[in-house]
Design a protein around this nucleic acid. Structure first.
Lengths: 386, 386
DNA sequence: TTGATTAAGTCAAATAAATTGAATTGTCAA
DNA sequence: TTGACAATTCAATTTATTTGACTTAATCAA
């Protein structure tokens, strides 16, 4: 539970750290760059950039990528991230299972795994995660000191809020401060967030949101989540619970209803009148069979999505809104195509180069990969408040 | 029009600047502090803090406030902002008038003024503002080099959006990039934002939001605006148009309607069936006379406010939501007391120390004072992205 | 009263990391 | 072939911080 974002002063060491991160971030965004080019892009001297490049080379985080001739002058030696120079471990914790993933520095998937979870008390989960990490590192032959950190995705909202008590919640975690717990058990850098935020960052590192600094990500879990990115940083609210878009009121048949009741996997189940949660394959089948109940649901859901889009655009003024998560791609595409894009929005502008609504590029594992992305993102983004 | 928030590296000069701002910010927040105390609060050495304090003293931005004995040890000499050490000039531009204000470093009002505006073309306005500033500085005997900068508030949204063309808009500014224009004409630091954002910061510096880093400010102009603060910084969106809360859909009689059509001064006028805009005094009178049409409006508006609160809380997870602007205080209080505070919200938590909804402490001039607050805020807050 | 303890603040030297300026090297264009 | 140009490195300088020793002043306890 955050709240107090204490501002810290700067000193040479923290400056250097910031600059290292900024250099890595530049390389991540641009692919390859030369030393002088990096200096220019960050407002630093060539020499300063050069020193940092030398250090990063020595640490194995970047590598030479040949020289590039571009007009006059000495051809610039290009540098880029060394994918095998570091790794990020990501964990997605659900009530009944743990998903883990190992990404290399380039965001490439090295390994993923699903494990059933019987005992989901805080202690059991945290030690379980530790074992899973050790195992995955061993089987992937990755050394622990090449690990940048561990990213953890848990179902929100955090703390005892008006939304607690849902079936997708973790039992027994209501009053647990998870971050310190994991930090103690796992050591090193630990980032904690919810599925939607993680998915949003995943899209930023390897998907559609590359180079985009203001966007929102609508995440389909069983319910509906939202990751908000502004100025390249997550907006997570006072208690880390920003983005509970599933609970904003939209126009329903008999009055305002929570968006989630019209636009979510659980709502399909309720609408169709099915006893058990529908998985993605079942939904795909229903869709390809043009099941009339599903089509009906899609019509209503698309309308609800329109309301949500109008709300999000006017409140957050994003460059684009991305949809993704645990929902078949063809359903998302259908929703997008049917969604009425409201005219009375600040996003309805002529000079907007991006589609207002698009489907994310990362597939089903978005949240798990996103967990690892939390770590990569923090490695590429100079801490701004800390 | 922003979008590109380029990350910059750090160097000694920028570090020092950051630390200076952080020290000023600490003093602003705490009132008075000793040198060692400041060092601790910022994670700097006493010596570093001491050097900066010496510099700020020499610049006249802070002053000694006596010594404080607190237990053992040498009593700490206290320092605090020197109100007369620097000033901020604020301008609020409306289609028919310009409001100006001069604040000292402590946020105290030195002078305010209203001027009619006949020619509101960009060139005329910018030179007009320059003349008004010179005049106000002269009449207040404040030297130009004691001015930290100029804050400007203009009606949003900026750029050619789906919301353009309203009567409260400035004609002829649709395709003008205002910030460069004012920077060239006025020189020095220029901050530009909309009324709601400015009001939000005003509340942060001198009102209810002191020490609060995550909150939202619902601003009554003629329409309805929203200032979003997260981690102590404004959330302004990709194009500076975040917070257009007046245009989010809420449940109306015959379907979804823009919030503004139920909750705004213009909507009172429309509801009552009045030909001209109602001013605050008229509204106060109607309220104290318990005018049934107004009471009726208040009931509907409070309900709409409830929807907005639910939406804002779940999307932004603020510590509190503040209401203010050009609306009589007693009406705001009434709205707050009648507003149904929804249970299904992440803000409905037991450990929340602040009221979920409260009326702002700054009065009618909030936006104009807020314009100056933009500058003060930037002086107290280390730039994080720039 | 006295001496130990604690904390604030200063001074001077050391350190980290940036900048500056000159020298070197490879490419392009005249 | 030669000069302009840009990338890079080397060495020296500058900035701003940290470190460690020291001084000062208040509290606490014998």
């Amino acid at each position: 539970m955050k709240i107090d974002t204490q501002i810290r002063g700067s000193n040479p060491l923290r400056s250097r750290n910031r600059n290292r991160q900024a250099v890595l971030g530049s390389l991540q965004a641009a692919g390859t760059m030369g030393r002088a080019e990096i200096g220019r892009s960050l407002g630093l001297t060539t020499q300063a950039a050069s020193n940092i490049i030398a250090e990063l080379l020595a640490d194995g985080l970047i590598e030479e990528k040949g020289a590039r001739v571009s007009g006059r002058g000495l051809p610039a030696v290009q540098y880029g991230l060394n994918p095998k120079g570091a790794y990020a471990f990501g964990v997605e914790i659900r009530p009944d299972a743990i998903f883990t993933a190992l990404l290399d520095l380039s965001g490439t998937r090295i390994a993923t795994e699903r494990t059933n979870l019987r005992d989901n008390t805080p202690e059991a989960v945290s030690t379980h995660v530790l074992r899973l990490r050790d195992a995955m590192l061993a089987s992937s032959s990755v050394s622990m000191n090449a690990i940048l950190g561990t990213g953890i995705v848990m179902p929100g909202p955090f703390g005892d809020t008006g939304l607690s008590g849902r079936s997708s919640d973790l039992q027994g975690w209501e009053n647990v401060d998870a971050l310190p717990l994991f930090k103690e058990t796992l050591g090193g850098v630990v980032e904690l967030s919810n599925d939607a935020n993680a998915a949003a960052l995943s899209e930023n590192l390897t998907g559609l949101a590359q180079g985009i600094s203001c966007y929102a990500y609508i995440y389909f879990g069983r319910g509906l989540g939202l990751g908000i990115v502004q100025d390249g940083r997550l907006v997570s609210g006072a208690f880390g619970n920003a983005g509970e878009v599933g609970h904003i009121p939209v126009h329903g048949p008999g009055g305002p209803v929570p968006l989630e009741s019209l636009l979510s996997r659980d709502s399909i189940q309720a609408f169709i009148g099915c006893d058990e949660p529908l998985d993605l394959d079942q939904l795909s089948e229903l869709f390809s069979a043009r099941d009339p109940r599903l089509i009906d649901w899609l019509d209503r859901a698309a309308k609800a999505l329109g309301h949500a889009v109008l709300t999000l655009e006017n409140l957050l003024d994003p460059q684009t809104i991305i949809l993704g998560g645990a929902m078949p791609p063809e359903l998302i595409d259908h929703l997008i195509s049917k969604c009425p894009l409201p005219a009375g929005s600040v996003a309805n502008r002529n000079d907007n180069l991006l589609p207002r609504l698009q489907r994310g590029a990362c597939g089903r594992l978005t949240a798990t990969l996103g967990a690892a992305s939390l770590v990569l993102h923090s490695a590429f983004t100079p801490i701004t408040v800390s």
